[in-house]
């Protein structure tokens, strides 16, 4: 299975897209640029709609969620901090919270960055901040380096919210195989969290 150059091209394309998403989001947040917002919209709205459909929203609800998400992106863009995460991850989180609120009708409990009782925000040495960031990078690398059959079942389970038996049907695999791949992928992540 040698497709090195293809992989490289895909990786470069992804970097370009990620850089452009970050640039556009920053332009929206810092300058209120409508042009940048339109760029973000054209890039993300069709994908958000597709994603909401995957999560089970009917077409009108998927459109509504997409519009509400993009409206929230416009409103909250100034709070995006490139030092604390990727632009695409930030947009994903906005969409996820909308989905939880509108479709599941649940609260989304999250720590409050301005909470005086939040640990580590102020009481931290620079070393500790760096080591926390490293923890994140270690897991990001681990997810990226899992065997594709393992990362695929994790994607379906945690990104598309599918049950194990649903995944087995979708991939045409025995349920036991899906469970094994999930377990191996999670075990790798667990090992890295202990390291």
């Amino acid at each position: 299975m040698d497709h090195g150059t293809g992989d490289e091209a895909v990786a470069v394309a992804r970097q370009v897209r990620a850089a452009s998403a970050e640039g556009l989001l920053l332009a929206v947040g810092r300058e209120g640029s409508r042009e940048a917002f339109a760029g973000l919209f054209r890039l993300f709205a069709p994908r958000l709609e597709g994603y909401c459909r995957k999560l089970g929203a009917d077409p009108p609800m998927a459109q509504e969620l997409t519009q509400e998400t993009m409206l929230a992106v416009w409103r909250k863009a100034a709070t995006f901090d490139p030092a604390s995460g990727s632009a695409t991850g930030w947009i994903f989180a906005v969409a996820r919270n909308r989905y939880i609120d509108r479709v599941r009708r649940e609260l989304r409990p999250e720590p409050d960055p301005s909470d005086p009782a939040l640990a580590g925000a102020d009481a931290h040495t620079p070393e500790a901040v760096v080591s926390a960031a490293q923890q994140g990078r270690v897991l990001a690398d681990a997810l990226g380096n899992l065997p594709p059959d393992q990362s695929e079942v994790l994607r379906l389970a945690y990104f598309e919210h599918r049950t194990q038996s649903d995944i087995a049907t979708a991939l045409g695999l025995p349920l036991g195989t899906v469970k094994t791949r999930t377990r191996l992928g999670l075990r790798r992540l667990r090992e890295l969290m202990k390291a």
Binding site: R47, C52, G89, I91, F92, A95, G136, L143
Partner: peptide, 18 residues
Amino acid sequence: RAFEAQCGEWLEACDPAG
């Protein structure tokens, strides 16, 4: 945040709907 970034990449790779 790292997992959210991964989900962001998966979102970008989603098939656009309609």
